[in-house]
Simulated assay, not measured.
Amino acid sequence: MNNSQYIVGVDVGGSTINLGVIRNGEIVKKISVPTPAQESKDVVVDAIIAGIEQVSMGFDILGIGIGVPGLVDEKRGIVYQVTNIPSWDEVHLVDSISEHFGLEVCLTNDANCYVLGEKFHGKGKPYDSVVGITLGTGLGVGLVINGSLHAGLMSCAGELAVLPYLAHNYEHYCSGQFFQKEHGEEGKVLFAQAAAGDERALRIMAELGTHIGQLVKLTLHILSPEAIFFGGSIKDCSPYFEASMREVLKTFPYQRVLDLLVIDYSGEADMALLGASAIFEMRNQEIVESGLLESRP
């Protein structure tokens, strides 16, 4: 890829669409626009297009990478069942974006974008097998196995959030939903209280840590990666939940695995954007190597 060319990364969320222009793993321009989540599917697509036009103005754009919540048919570029955008039951997103801009567009799940960002542009660089866990309004899990993204059928690999756990599922107990649904409080309020030394808030944070510890144990049993990285807003609570999470991990039966395992927290707020550009770079390179497309100058 010529260094004069740039990739647009798009991270679509239920409330905000984050967009960035990326070159060589660095975000050179970034904007955010509201997601018209309650509008028709075309209105949401138009908001993405308008955001791409705005952020890319003045740049020589090579292609576009997009991360979205929900199920994704990567080969056909179709998004299904986006919980926070009700009208997005079936959206042919790649066709709409590529036809408008005349550029190649690549698409994957937003959790996949996060783990790709961490693997190729963050702390995950030294490791071949990495799990990225986003702790935010919801719970997302992305998988890199032997240096390659493992998205699975419909980008559904790693959907640990919906697995039954206690009275509900892992997302209920390991995301921002835990604070409201179990304790009737906003996470940011409890975080501030914990930082001030409030005993009740500290107990709730420790309780969160026990649940996250069980999630990590599940991840180890299924995948046993070299490293697990946490992203999302709830990771900022880690000073108050890490001790209880580590305590739960002591019950994992294979101490040698724990001795080698790396658990860390993302140092970059925009890893999903960097990962969106990485998904384009990866898919574009795969096409080049297949011989279906000549390498770009």
Score class of each variant (00 low, 15 high):
224 S>G: 08
190 L>D: 00
80 Y>C: 09
215 L>K: 11
231 G>N: 04
257 V>P: 01
5 Q>I: 06
192 A>P: 07
52 I>C: 06
281 E>Q: 15
163 L>M: 12
10 V>P: 03
59 F>A: 03
272 A>E: 12
230 F>Y: 10
54 Q>N: 14
61 I>Y: 11
193 Q>L: 13
86 P>D: 05
195 A>S: 09
263 I>W: 14
142 G>D: 05
275 G>L: 08
152 G>F: 14
261 L>M: 03
165 Y>E: 02
268 E>A: 11
55 V>W: 09
262 V>E: 05
47 A>F: 12
173 Y>G: 08
19 L>S: 03
22 I>C: 13
33 V>A: 08
82 V>P: 05
174 C>Q: 02
204 I>L: 12
70 G>H: 03
53 E>K: 15
92 H>A: 09
127 Y>I: 00
24 N>E: 12
119 K>N: 05
110 D>M: 02
164 P>V: 04
68 V>F: 14
206 A>W: 13
124 G>N: 03
251 T>F: 13
293 L>V: 11
99 E>I: 02
175 S>R: 10
239 P>S: 10
87 S>I: 11
232 G>R: 07
251 T>M: 13
263 I>F: 13
170 Y>D: 01
228 I>P: 02
102 G>W: 12
232 G>E: 00
70 G>M: 07
101 F>L: 08
7 I>S: 03
68 V>Q: 06
151 A>C: 10
261 L>I: 03
185 E>A: 15
82 V>S: 14
110 D>S: 02
216 V>L: 12
284 N>K: 15
28 V>S: 02
159 E>A: 10
97 I>H: 10
15 S>P: 01
220 L>F: 08
9 G>D: 00
251 T>D: 11
39 E>R: 15
136 G>Q: 06
44 V>F: 14
54 Q>E: 12
30 K>T: 05
80 Y>E: 02
279 I>R: 09
235 K>H: 09
150 H>I: 05
193 Q>Y: 08
125 K>C: 01
118 E>W: 11
84 N>S: 12
179 F>V: 00
48 I>P: 04
157 A>I: 08
107 L>C: 06
239 P>E: 01
235 K>L: 06
27 I>D: 01
229 F>I: 02
105 V>E: 00
88 W>I: 01
104 E>T: 07
142 G>A: 14
255 Q>E: 08
246 R>T: 00
268 E>P: 08
127 Y>W: 06
63 G>A: 11
243 A>I: 02
233 S>Q: 11
245 M>G: 02
